[in-house]
Design a protein around this nucleic acid. Structure first.
Lengths: 150, 150
DNA sequence: ATGCAATCTCAAGCTAACTTGAGGTCAAGG
DNA sequence: CCTTGACCTCAAGTTAGCTTGAGATTGCAT
């Protein structure tokens, strides 16, 4: 009557995909990025733990909140033993996400207000227009993609 | 005493870069994307009109407001003769940008509110968590970059 | 006429978050 | 045993917005 491992405890990648809604390739990609670490069968196939579903849920939610995969990995790595986040971890993380969201919202609101003040002027001058000032630039330096609005 | 073209009317790319703050390569890139269309000297060097500075200003401002280059090109193409936007054009365009900004702000606020309602729960369940529902997905389909938060 | 900075045209690289494809292996059912 | 679907590992492609570099010209000043 002791606990013995049920076969459903080890989940192959295809089922993982079905259960999370991700594609198989995306799951492999997340492993490559150290977001999940499945074990392997003797034949080198991935097997996931039940808790990995929760872990992937966390990744997907954090992504929706606007975190990049690298940032998500950092959050996960901060946890003791790099375990899947529990309720208390989630509280801490989500508070920090919340403040990032607020910052972003405030930034967009400032932009909108400038735009309002500018709609009538039509100056479009690099030197005078309020909308064009380096301090408030959203653009990062260097190459790579930028995308701010949906 | 008739108007005769001053030499300063035709601006080479380097000066264009100085005046707009862009790099030379970025300006060439914008041309490739049909955002600007400089004329050429007999020796195939680019020469810009004064109005192109204004046009580039428009591009930079629109970019800061979160428009992708493709969208900016569309806006410019909508204008009669594809001319550089004047005050009236700018009013029309900026109003439509404003509403996009508002949509985005509202979306982020909804997300934040869900997060607030969720901070205590820690459920992280794909099937139950409010934060995870497909309807509200920010993610697009297909490959390519995503980036939502700063 | 000449020298040198400024330009020119490709081609390739960068980042993010994946997808697609080729070519080969595993495992469960019949 | 054999078939077949699920897996595996690379390698390369995609999008956006540029940058970097190589190798060749141009154009202004002396």
């Amino acid at each position: 009557m002791a606990d013995r491992p049920k076969k459903t405890d080890l989940i192959p990648i295809g089922e993982m995909a079905r259960r999370t809604g991700l594609s198989v390739s995306a799951i492999r990609f997340y492993e490559e990025k150290d977001l999940i670490e499945p074990i392997r069968t003797s034949g080198n196939q991935r097997r996931f733990l039940r808790s990995d579903i929760r872990r992937v849920s966390f990744i997907l939610i954090a992504q929706q909140l606007g975190l990049a995969l690298g940032e998500i990995e950092e959050e996960l790595r901060k946890l003791p033993q790099g375990r899947t986040p529990n309720a208390r971890d989630w509280q801490k993380i989500s508070r920090s996400i919340r403040s990032a969201l607020n910052t972003r919202i405030a930034q967009l609101e400032r932009t909108r207000d400038k735009l309002d003040g500018c709609i009538g002027c039509g100056c479009l001058s690099l030197t005078h227009c309020q909308l064009y000032n380096k301090d408030d630039h959203l653009a990062e330096q260097g190459p790579g993609p930028r995308n701010v609005l949906g």
